[in-house]
Design a protein around this nucleic acid. Structure first.
Lengths: 200, 200
DNA sequence: GTCTATATAGCGATAGAC
DNA sequence: GTCTATCGCTATATAGAC
């Protein structure tokens, strides 16, 4: 596949940042162009409309999810712990694409809604074999959503951050969730399919 | 206290509805005025600015929380089950005020961020004595957040609703959470303080 | 209290020079 | 591929009639 133009990626980065920091309303073409270091006309050469810009972010989210699912499959501590742990925002590329897309969903973007729904479905499919039943799956998924929700609310810089666990508190939470949802005592997680990774 | 004017409440209702259904950007003064059945000038008599409108919703949320905490204290199945169950959107006054305020937070409203943070803190304080430790409290709170997050994403009408449990699935989820977080086997929930409600 | 009319500013998008 | 200039529209807010 041909590598996308540099300016195009810079515009998408700027759009994402503005959505996360200041919300959908503040992410105007003018503001995005300024943040990306191009003019409004220059921006509109790469994205013919605001909808095209939103579609670009939805596609980025989808691509980043491919990589995340691979990491989830390879995670030594298993997909459930990996999922909960990485639901705490680390401000990496996937976190940012996800939060930016939630902003767009709340502003009525169908493309973003579809993209988020897809991500969730793919995560659930990957996790399902590693938990006891559908209720346990629901618990795990909702917990991750709760973490993202809090991360996405507390981003401006203050209120809400007290609710996001880190360090030892996060480890304890993961341990509690694993105990409540693991498949069975004799086989907490099936061996990885085609991987040289040793279980710990 | 003097009862607020009818038109004022109608405006607040319309603002809330537009925020929930179409997002912050669509909730313009013109759109709100039209939905409330008044003119733009009429609206601006009651709320001098858009910020004042947002502050009105934040205050409404705070008042509705008072009533919810009382119901939580009186709930026969205990505060944890009550909290999880009512985190599934029933489109009542509190649900609507909460979702509308999350829209405003994501658009950068400080008043709304403060209001949401307050609600969460008050809920947590009420639930804390009924769970084992802080980790269990975290699990319960995040689960409720996850439910609200999904409700609030799926509102436009379609994608996302498959993740919100109802009926028997919800009962099983609550049961799982209670088992994972309850204080101790001999005393799963302290007797209600000053209430004639019989335990079931 | 509620209205119409208007001022001012900023939005998304197009046209065409370079 | 990126720019400036500009159009048409809509936003928030004010002024003043009723």
């Amino acid at each position: 596949m041909p590598r996308p133009p540099l300016a195009r990626e810079r515009v998408l980065d700027a759009y994402e940042s503005l959505l996360i920091a200041d919300g959908e309303r503040a992410a105007t073409l003018e503001a995005v162009a300024a943040a990306a270091g191009v003019s409004k006309g220059g921006l509109l050469y790469h994205f013919h409309s605001k909808d095209a810009l939103a579609a670009g972010l939805a596609q980025r989210l989808s691509e980043l999810t491919d990589a995340d699912l691979q990491r989830m499959r390879d995670a030594p501590e298993g997909p459930v712990a990996y999922y909960v742990r990485t639901s705490v925002m680390e401000d990496d590329a996937l976190d940012r694409a996800l939060v930016a897309n939630t902003r767009l969903v709340q502003a009525g973007s169908h493309a973003a809604a579809q993209a988020i729904s897809d991500v969730r479905r793919r995560w659930a499919a990957e996790i399902r074999p590693h938990v006891r039943d559908d209720t346990a799956l629901e618990l795990v998924m909702l917990l991750g959503d709760g973490l993202y929700f809090n991360n996405s609310l507390s981003s401006p810089g203050g209120a809400g951050e007290e609710f996001v666990p880190t360090g030892a508190a996060l480890d304890e939470l993961i341990s509690l969730v694993l105990n409540a949802t693991a498949r069975a005592l004799e086989d907490p997680e099936p061996a990885p399919r085609s991987s040289g990774l040793r279980p710990r």
